[in-house]
Structure formats: structure tokens, C-alpha cells
């Protein structure tokens, strides 16, 4: 009688349920990813980045990389970096970004048509706004984004069960939380 109660106690609070969502995204290989369908059955550690951000976003990516390394690249945990700058972050650009981190398999970087990405980001409560904008000597516009700093964990039923500050949270904390549900 006590055992089911104890198991219920260990269940994390459901922050969002994305089970019924349906987004067509594209990974760094140019392959279509149906989100969340293609990741169902796995835990998903998902961070939000853009490749023109050389400081905070690499910290977010680095944290996810450390989690994957510490866990030993398990098959039941999918790692995903979602770009909130789809206009510049094409699959080719994301592939180069992934290569710069020497990442393992089971680590996707996703982009999409800007309309789809806007809807997707709304669904996971990630905000962006254009901030610094400047031009280089060739007249090319360079802009930067203010953005949510977030890593989230989805369970195998595509429910968001944990959220963290993406760049400032120690990977150990996320690993400990994952250990309570895996």
C-alpha cells in the first residue's frame, strides 16, 4: 500500500504537457524532425541557443554536453539545442556549430521556418527580442538577441518536468534531477 504512494511522491510536477503538440523542425543534417513525436519514449534535455551568441549560448550548450558526458551518452536521453534565430541558423550553420563542440551522437540542433519556430518557442515559453544591431564595414547588418536562458527536461511522454537557467545551472543538479525519474 505504501509503495505506490512513495512512487507518486517521486513524480515531478508537470510544468507543461507537449504530448499533443506537433511541429516540423529540421536538424543539422537537414532531416525533418517531428516534435515531439520523434523523441517520444526518451527523456529530452533541451536548450535554446543561437550560433551568433559566442558567450552565453556556448555555456548553455556546454552544460548539456557535460550532462551527456557524465551520463555516458545513454540512449534513453536525447539532447536537443533549438535555435531561436532560424533566419541565420540554417542546418548547415548548425552542423558547423555542432562540429565545433565535437559532440556525440544523440545530440540534435534544430531550426525551422521562422513561422513554425515562433509557434514552437511560444509553446515552450522561450522569448527573444532583437537588441544590439550594428553594421560592419561592408554594410552588412549584424544583430544580436536578448533571449530566455533555459534548459528544460521532457519525460518520455513529452511532458516538461524540469526547467533551469541554461547557462548558470550546474550540470550536476540536472543530473541529480534526472536520476530521480529515470
Amino acid at each position: 500500500m505504501l509503495l505506490p504512494l512513495c512512487i507518486a511522491c517521486n513524480q515531478p510536477k508537470i510544468i507543461d504537457d507537449l504530448n499533443d503538440a506537433s511541429f516540423t523542425l529540421v536538424n543539422q543534417e537537414g532531416e525533418k524532425i517531428s516534435f515531439p513525436e520523434d523523441y517520444k519514449g526518451k527523456y529530452v534535455v533541451m536548450g535554446f541557443i543561437y550560433t551568433h551568441c559566442p558567450d552565453i549560448c556556448p555555456l548553455i550548450t556546454r552544460n548539456m554536453v557535460k550532462i551527456q558526458e557524465e551520463l555516458g551518452s545513454p540512449e534513453d536521453v536525447q539532447f536537443v539545442g533549438v535555435s531561436f534565430d532560424p533566419g541565420r541558423d540554417t542546418p548547415e550553420v548548425l552542423k558547423k556549430y555542432k562540429n565545433a563542440f565535437n559532440l556525440e551522437e544523440n545530440f540534435d540542433f534544430l531550426t525551422a521556418d521562422s513561422t513554425v519556430m515562433t509557434a514552437f518557442l511560444d509553446s515552450v515559453r522561450v522569448r527573444t527580442q532583437v537588441s544590439l544591431s550594428t553594421e560592419n564595414e561592408n554594410g552588412e547588418k549584424i544583430y544580436f538577441l536578448n533571449h530566455s536562458d533555459k534548459i528544460m527536461v521532457l519525460d518520455p511522454k513529452s511532458r516538461v518536468i524540469f526547467e533551469y537557467g541554461g547557462s548558470m545551472t550546474k550540470p550536476e543538479y540536472i543530473i541529480e534531477d534526472l536520476a530521480t525519474v529515470r
Partner: peptide, 13 residues
């Protein structure tokens, strides 16, 4: 790199 008043990660020159 800094945090904006409304909680976003930002960057300024």
C-alpha cells in the same frame, strides 16, 4: 553579457 530587467540574457557593447 548581462541579464535584462525582464529576465532575458542580453549582450551589450
Amino acid at each position: 553579457s548581462y541579464m535584462t530587467d525582464d529576465g532575458l540574457a542580453g549582450m551589450r557593447e
